[in-house]
Design a protein around this nucleic acid. Structure first.
Length: 564
RNA sequence: GUCUCAGUAGCUCAGUAGGAUAGAGCAACAGUUUCCUAAACUGUAGGUCGGAGGUUCGAAUCCUCUCUGGGACACCA
């Protein structure tokens, strides 16, 4: 299946003493244009050793590069280009995909260990905004990609369920709140109270004091405070679960900030034991000057702990509990410094596993080039966006396929898919300027485009009488029309490897668009259901495409409708 | 000020362990449906890869400097 290796093993004896097979394998690349060949070996670096021009070396090599795998070999511009035997390779690739099904591209080693993913992490009593979407959707996709690569993912929703904002909220609720309204519409009401608190606090500084007091009460275990906090948390989670259901995302743990309250003393003690703490401006810090970083704050001057303390406790807990092979934090790039500090403190504490921790940052969602602020009530609610997207999908279905059976379900898949795909298709670090129109787009490089392609391909299988059972033998396909698709199918495992290595779901998104484009091109050029001797062979190819498209979409967290 | 991320077609972005003529999508324009789902396909047009040096046989990709924009930089998370 590995044609690069095949090429390298042919070249190797010809370059005895100059390059070994491994080096050759690494040098082999794909030509810019398929007309040049399927794989290329550049001869430039050999020019010095052999004291000949790359062109001469390439033509000499080309004469001796022969293999049952290759149709022909050419020397061009200092490269040795080989053309694979289209019929044999196409047949082989299709058979392989059909045989493996959804397992195609999966790692053979399925026990590479646990990967914890810190993701989503919305703040209780605050709306689930577009900002949280990124962490949720990137984290989910990474969990699927890592699973595919042989790891066991553990998705942790590190809820923002503790902190002074709860003191403020309790204050506001007791002053202006109404139980029934909160029950009817928890997040909306709580957000209202939160915003009102900040508006009023500007005029009345006493409120801030009251807020701090209530938080102190909460920490000290005051019953009223505690029960309000619990209630807010529960109601918020109900709201969130509606969104997670819509997104089709589940978590393995909801251990949030509050969960670590009783685990932080130990961290401080450990740091003390290891003599890492120093006092600076009445606060306890771990000095990181040797790492060229500002100090990491462990305890405030008033003795209270901070988020770094909490994250240290969480890291320890996760290692002790899960023994992770990797611990991934899918958190915005504005927190890069914090995670650098976190990892270095753990390293200083002597935990070698700190090397297995990685911050996977991503760019922000901006509105008109600016950050969105919860306090000012300037947030865009994810749920509204999702609903709008679903409504649009529904409208499109009514227009284009009014007889479709399960319209609602399909509209959901497509509407949600559009939003998720839009987030994942570009490199994570890019900021995204929020643009609803852009997000709801269904043409071009979008989720709905890929889903449509999948539905179209499935329709061919239905009409062609394809049965999912054993594929029969049939004449091999050798047309150039099929060839681009074959090469794309061959690339799927590479795309997964790249996505895993770079913690980058966009590798899969781009792949899936490429494959869809290749198929649509094919669809436009060839009549797939034409009754000729190749029909069954074409259906096999289409079936392989369906398998890979579905699996690619799945890795992004999208569903693939069989009709739309 | 220090650190960090980004700058590629009108817009949104691919392409960066150096390699052949820098690619998509959207928008624009011109086409394709008696034919497998037109959420599709074909074609045209669109570029000093922010700028300047350097390394190299070869640079969008590596190094230095520089300009522009985002973010972070101690008691918020």
């Amino acid at each position: 299946m590995d044609y690069v290796k095949g090429f390298a093993s042919v070249l190797s004896p010809l370059l005895e003493g100059d390059l070994n097979e491994n080096e050759i394998t690494l040098m082999i690349e794909k030509p810019k244009h398929s007309g040049l060949g399927d794989y290329a070996f550049p001869c430039f670096s050999l020019a010095k050793i052999k004291r000949k021009s790359p062109q001469v070396i390439a033509s000499e090599l080309a004469l001796n590069v022969t293999s049952p795998l290759f149709e022909k070999t050419e020397a061009a511009g200092g490269y040795v280009n080989v053309f694979l035997k289209k019929d044999a390779v196409t047949e082989h690739v299709i058979q392989n995909v059909l045989k493996l099904g959804g397992q195609y591209g999966s790692s053979e080693n399925k026990s590479k260990g646990v990967v914890t993913l810190d993701m989503s992490s919305p703040n209780i009593a605050k709306p689930f905004s577009m900002g949280h979407l990124r962490s949720t959707v990137i984290g989910n996709s990474l969990s699927l990609i890592f699973e595919k690569s042989g790891y066991q993912p553990v998705k942790i929703n590190h809820l923002g369920d503790w902190g002074t904002q709860f003191g403020k909220l309790i204050t506001a609720y007791k002053k202006w709140g109404d139980e029934e309204e909160v029950i009817a519409n928890p997040i909306k009401e709580l957000l209202k109270l939160y915003i009102k608190f900040h508006d009023e606090a500007e005029k009345d500084p006493e409120l801030e004091v009251a807020g701090r007091n209530w938080f102190k009460q909460l920490e000290d275990g005051n019953e009223e405070a505690l029960s309000l906090w619990k209630w807010f948390r529960e109601e918020s989670l109900k709201d969130f679960s509606r969104i997670y259901d819509l997104l089709n995302i589940k978590f393995d743990s909801f251990a949030g900030e509050a969960f670590y309250n009783d685990k932080m003393n130990r961290v401080v003690e450990l740091l003390e034991e290891k003599r890492l703490l120093t006092t600076s401006e009445q606060a306890l810090v771990v000095d990181l000057e040797s790492e060229n970083m500002p100090p990491c704050l462990i305890k405030k001057s008033d003795g209270a702990t901070l988020y770094a303390t909490r994250d240290l406790a969480a890291a320890l807990y996760r290692f002790e509990n899960y023994r992770f092979a990797h611990s991934i934090y899918v958190v915005g790039n504005e927190q890069t410094l914090h995670f650098k500090q976190l990892i270095h403190v753990l390293k200083k504490m002597g935990y070698a596993w700190s090397d297995q921790m990685v911050h996977v940052p991503f760019g922000m969602i901006l509105k008109d080039g600016k950050k969105m602020s919860t306090r000012k009530g300037k947030v865009i609610l994810l749920e509204e966006v999702l609903n709008e997207s679903i409504a649009l999908a529904k409208k499109n279905i009514e227009e284009k396929n009014p007889n479709l059976e399960n319209k609602e379900a399909v509209a959901r898949m497509v509407g949600v898919g559009a939003v998720i795909f839009h987030d994942l298709k570009n490199f994570r670090m890019n900021d995204i300027d929020f643009n609803l129109e852009d997000m709801l787009r269904v043409e071009g490089e979008t989720g709905p485009y890929v889903q449509y392609t999948y539905a179209r391909a499935n329709s061919l299988l239905r009409k062609g009488g394809w049965n999912t059972g054993e594929a029969q033998d049939s004449p091999a396909l050798s047309g150039v029309e099929e060839w681009d698709i074959t090469m794309k199918l061959l690339e799927f495992p590479e795309a997964i490897q790249r996505a895993t290595a770079k913690y980058d779901p966009s590798q899969i998104a781009k792949y899936v668009v490429d494959l869809a484009q290749a198929f649509n091109k094919y669809y436009g050029a060839v009549r797939i259901l034409e009754e000729d001797e190749w029909k069954y062979s074409r259906l096999k190819l289409v079936s392989a495409i369906c398998t890979v498209l579905e699996e690619g979409l799945r890795l992004l967290g999208l569903q693939a409708p069989e009709e739309m």
